[in-house]
Simulated assay, not measured.
Amino acid sequence: MTDSPIRWGILGAANFALKHMGPALHAASGAELAAVASSSAEKVAKFAQFAPGLRHHDSYDALLDDPEIDAVYIPLPNHLHVEWGIKALEAGKPVLIEKPVGMNVAEIDRLIAARDAAGLLAAEAFMIIHHPQWQRAKALLESGAIGNLCHVNAVFSYFNDDAGNIRNQADIGGGGLRDIGCYVLGGARYVTGQEPLSLDYARIQMQDGVDVFADMGFAFEGFTFQGYTGTRMAPRQEVHFHGDRGVISLSCPFNAGVFDQAEVVLSRPDLTREVMRFPGVNQYVRQVEAFGRALRSSESYAWPLEQARGLQAMIDQVLARA
Rank of each mutant, 00 (worst) to 15 (best):
M1C: 11
D3T: 06
P5E: 11
G9W: 01
I10N: 02
A14T: 12
M21A: 10
M21D: 04
G22P: 01
A24M: 08
H26F: 04
H26I: 04
A28F: 01
A35T: 01
S38W: 03
A41C: 10
A41L: 06
K46I: 07
F50N: 09
G53K: 11
G53M: 05
L54N: 08
S59G: 08
Y60M: 11
Y60R: 10
L64C: 14
L64G: 05
P67Y: 01
N78M: 14
W84D: 00
A91T: 00
P94T: 00
M103A: 08
E107M: 02
D116F: 04
E124K: 00
Q133D: 13
A137G: 13
A137V: 11
S143Y: 08
I146G: 10
N148L: 10
C150S: 10
V152E: 14
F156P: 02
Y158H: 07
F159D: 10
D161F: 08
N168A: 10
A170N: 05
G173R: 07
G175K: 03
L177Q: 08
D179P: 03
Y183D: 11
L185I: 02
G187L: 09
A188Q: 07
P196H: 03
L197K: 06
S198V: 03
L199Y: 05
Y201S: 15
I204V: 10
Q205E: 12
V210P: 03
V210D: 07
F218L: 09
A219I: 09
F225T: 03
Y228A: 11
Y228D: 09
Y228R: 13
T231H: 04
A234W: 08
E238I: 13
E238G: 06
H240W: 13
H242P: 03
G243W: 01
R245Y: 09
S251I: 05
P253A: 09
N255S: 13
A256K: 12
Q261I: 06
V264D: 10
L266P: 01
D270K: 12
D270N: 04
D270L: 03
L271H: 11
R273Q: 14
M276W: 13
G280P: 01
N282K: 07
Y301F: 10
Y301G: 06
Y301K: 08
A302N: 14
L305Y: 03
E306R: 15
G310D: 05
G310H: 11
G310T: 04
G310R: 07
L311V: 02
Q317Y: 11
A320Q: 04
A320F: 04
A322L: 10
